[in-house]
Amino acid sequence: MLLWFLRRLLQAMFVMLAMSLIVFIGLHAIGNPVDILISPEADQAERARIITQLGFDKPLWQQYAYFLQGALHGDLGRSFVFNEPALQLILQRMPATLELAVTAVLLSVLVGLPLGLFAGLYPNSFAGRAVMAGSILGFSLPGFWVGLMLIMVFAVSLGWLPSSGRGTTAALFGVQWSFLTRDGLAHLVLPALNLSLFNISLVLRLARAGVRETMPLDYIRFARAKGLSPTRVVFVHVLRNILIPVVTVVGLELGSTIAFSVVTESVFAWPGMGKLIIDSINVLDRPVIVAYLMIVVVMFVTINLVVDLLYTALDPRVRLGGRA
């Protein structure tokens, strides 16, 4: 178990190292932030001063060495634009993104699982087919377009829900959250729905496939032959089995949901990390980009870890560390 944990940690470090290297080389190839950051009116001396200050007078490998040195001490550099520590900039915006992503994932389970169960139990019914057809839309419609449609319908035409920002927030553990106030919750609905559409379809299909696969198995037949009620058969015997793939996939999807929130945050002006990273990429603000990706890696690793633990809890046949 400890070995397994250490191996995971080592893997994460390696990925971070590789990631930072790629970003350094990649951004260097794309363009020179100096051209964007320094106003054209600045004179030669001013220009040289800023270049030295940001470290661009040094060769790339030296810049990278400086970065690594700082990173080892927990310093991921200062934003070229905001002149604030990059890590702090991102962490400030992280709760907004997490709130959005977690809500979206919860929504995908709360909506997708019951729909999938239904479609799996009644695959030939009209409603069952309709659900499946809907899930194809959920997969294939582009997120930004759905986001705009949601705004058009629910915010502009009907005027039921607000379409931008986080609304009123309240503090919990020293962090501001939207879901704690009525107004904030109303602001959360549309972006979360937008972000969860893909995952709803995914969970729904997984659940349906799971039900279809599990129902004809001997142990379900045996459960029915014991005289159990259909409710017990479906919600205990079938559900426990399909929860295994659903939890795994949903857990892993949390990572990509955070990544995809970039689009949703832009459409709904949600002040999270996604919006920050888009702005930073536009101005080639390297420290922020690197720090963001580092955080994403850490997040992915943590999520995978938690999913593995959950998986073990759900499936007694699986034991960590490869022991059967």
Binding site: D218, Y219, F222, R240, N241, I244, P316
Partner: peptide, 10 residues
């Protein structure tokens, strides 16, 4: 199949 008549996760 005795391997399959009991639910593996219960």
């Amino acid at each position: 199949d005795p391997m399959m008549t009991l639910n593996p996760v219960l």
